[in-house]
Design a protein around this nucleic acid. Structure first.
Length: 147
DNA sequence: GCCAACGTTGGC
DNA sequence: GCCAACGTTGGC
């Protein structure tokens, strides 16, 4: 799951322990949260659009999907005028900290042929949430010796 | 700041 | 339903 650290970083999650993953405004990413994520699933917390993009920590899904509150907030950058309380458009899950890790940079992810098929590394990928295959997870947490 | 890639919008 | 125009993402 990607986040811009200037908006919400792994250190913010260390302080808060838990956060709603608000602000997802892409249907594919939303559907990953609504259909594929299960409570207890582990996720990589990825820093994007920053000087050192890469995996910065590990978190865990800790709620079912529920309506994203920011879509109803006219002062929020994530405000969605078309969304109504009785027919929300955007949903989020809650995520809790497992641990902060050393930074596994985007460059180092790309350097490993074992990770060549990772969805997040695909050309032109802009999805803020992408699936990680079990083998990719094991390789990153094991061979890259996180943390 | 640039630009490739992709998603969304809206006229027809 | 098509598709051009536009907006956004995100690495560099």
């Amino acid at each position: 799951m990607k986040s811009e650290p200037e908006e919400f970083s792994i250190d913010d999650l260390v302080r808060q322990k838990k956060t709603p993953w608000f602000g997802v405004r892409n249907y594919q990413a939303r559907n990953f949260m609504m259909k594929d994520m299960k409570i207890g699933d582990p996720v990589f917390f990825y820093h994007s659009s920053c000087p050192e993009p890469g995996i910065a920590g590990i978190a865990q899904i800790c709620s079912l999907p529920y309506p994203d509150a920011t879509q109803f907030d006219s002062k929020s950058p994530y405000y969605e005028p078309a969304a109504k309380k009785d027919s929300p458009r955007w949903f989020n899950v809650d995520v809790k900290l497992v641990r902060k890790t050393r930074l596994v940079s985007l460059a180092s992810l790309r350097a490993h042929p074992e990770l060549a098929d990772m969805r997040i590394l695909a050309r032109g990928n802009r999805l803020s949430i992408t699936p990680v295959e079990p083998g990719e997870w094991d390789f990153i947490t094991g061979s890259l010796a996180l943390p």
